[in-house]
Amino acid sequence: MSLEMAVKETPMNELPIMAPNEGIVLFYPNIPKNAATAVAEVLNTRWIGQGPKVEEFERQFEEKFSNPCKALAVGSGTDALHLAYILAGLEEGDEVIAPVFTCTATNIPFLYMGVKIVFADVDDNLNINVEHVRSLITSKTKAIVCVHYGGLPCDMQELWDLGKEHDIKIIEDAAHALGATYKGQIISSQSDFTMFSFQAIKHLTTGDGGMLVIKDPELVEKGKRIRWFGIDRSSKQKGIWENDITEIGYKYQMTDIAASIGLAGISEFDDHLAHRQNIYKLYVKCLEGVEGIRVIGKEYHDREHAAWLLTAEVDRREDLMLHLRKNGIESGQVHYRNDRYTIFGGREVGKFPKMDYIEERYIVLPLHAKVTEEHVRYIADIIKKGW
């Protein structure tokens, strides 16, 4: 069977990672080499739910990624965001400015809470548009949420300045941005709250999971209670809990099984991040000057891209996707504007001009642990042939 016929008859998510001319998938999980051993060790202990491995994972994460801020491990990135919104004091009727372009997980927790979402447009690189944010602030605005799309940090200094000027909480959705830096500072060390995701295909995975980084140390114990049904778990285990629940909590904890995978991932993180960043830079080099395509986020010098996604702005996207698919290369959009969804009220034509412009022009190309330099050169060569 020819390559073209194989691609037509095989769903792209089932194509294996092989030589460049045999199929390259868009995503592939990064499983640490010691993950199976780490999990097996946990399964032979007393603790498989939330236990000492979770605490160790939090400690090592703080040491590497969030110092001086504290970290709370949870069951998903969405859990971490909801917890952040609660700890930020958001209540029904409050307004929050959030990006119109992001995974729905960023904004869905506001619907749990009755918080009004005020969407902001994107900038040229699909991050939140700070100038639009500035124009949206009202007396009801209680927080601004930004998403470091694909791993490219937002214009944080401007957002921090707005937060200070208007006494507004700044919450970073850094699901894509573990290891990214902004003006020499690692993402998560400055804002009121920062969320990281350890979902299956993120830089660091725990199968599924998340981490909430909290700047105010006085909120940490409250966060721990809300993470576990509102119960003071530490006091309960010591036998000194007053056996009362005074605040609504959730089942948002991480397990030791998941944490053991995360610990194995931390030990390999630097090499994995370096690989992704090298692949991103090679894409930039190989596609420089190619007509009809622009790699998003390549022009910055004050921030370091975490390289979770390689996103490009292209002419005639559907034609390019077909051209890539015929040559065994998977591509896609991955994320979509949230105002397309009924749950968020639906789309109002013309309200977000930059999003409107780029909506049919962005494409995500393969970038993960299994992508090699040879793959990138092959993909670039296929693109250079035209579409």
Rank of each mutant, 00 (worst) to 15 (best):
L152D: 02
L159D: 10
C146P: 14
V147I: 09
K169G: 11
P153V: 01
K140E: 15
E165V: 10
T138I: 10
Y149D: 06
I137N: 08
K142P: 07
D155T: 11
M156G: 01
I170K: 13
L162R: 11
I171H: 04
H148Y: 06
L136V: 03
M156W: 01
L136D: 03
E165R: 11
S135Q: 07
Q157M: 08
L136H: 08
G163K: 08
E165L: 15
V145R: 00
T141W: 12
V147F: 15
S139Q: 12
G151C: 03
G151L: 04
L152T: 01
C154E: 07
D155W: 14
W160E: 11
A177N: 01
L162E: 07
L152W: 03
K142A: 05
G151Q: 03
L159Y: 09
L178N: 02
I168T: 05
E158M: 06
E158Y: 07
S135T: 07
L152A: 00
T138N: 07
I137K: 05
L162P: 10
E172V: 01
C146D: 12
W160T: 06
T141I: 12
L159C: 13
W160N: 08
M156S: 03
H176P: 01
H166M: 10
H166K: 12
E172G: 02
Q157V: 01
T141N: 09
L178V: 02
K169T: 11
V147E: 05
L162V: 09
W160M: 11
E158V: 03
I168L: 09
I137T: 07
I137F: 07
D155K: 15
Y149R: 11
L162F: 10
E158D: 12
Q157F: 05
Y149T: 10
T138H: 09
E158G: 11
V145W: 02
E172F: 01
I144F: 07
H176W: 00
W160S: 06
C154Q: 08
L159P: 13
D155L: 09
T138M: 04
S135G: 07
K140G: 08
V145A: 03
K169I: 10
A175M: 06
A174D: 01
I170M: 15
I168V: 12
A143Q: 12
H176I: 01
I137M: 07
D155Y: 15
H148V: 00
A174F: 01
D161I: 11
L178P: 01
C146N: 09
S139P: 10
V145E: 00
H148Q: 06
Q157P: 04
D167S: 14
H176K: 03
D167C: 09
K142V: 08
D167L: 14
S135F: 05
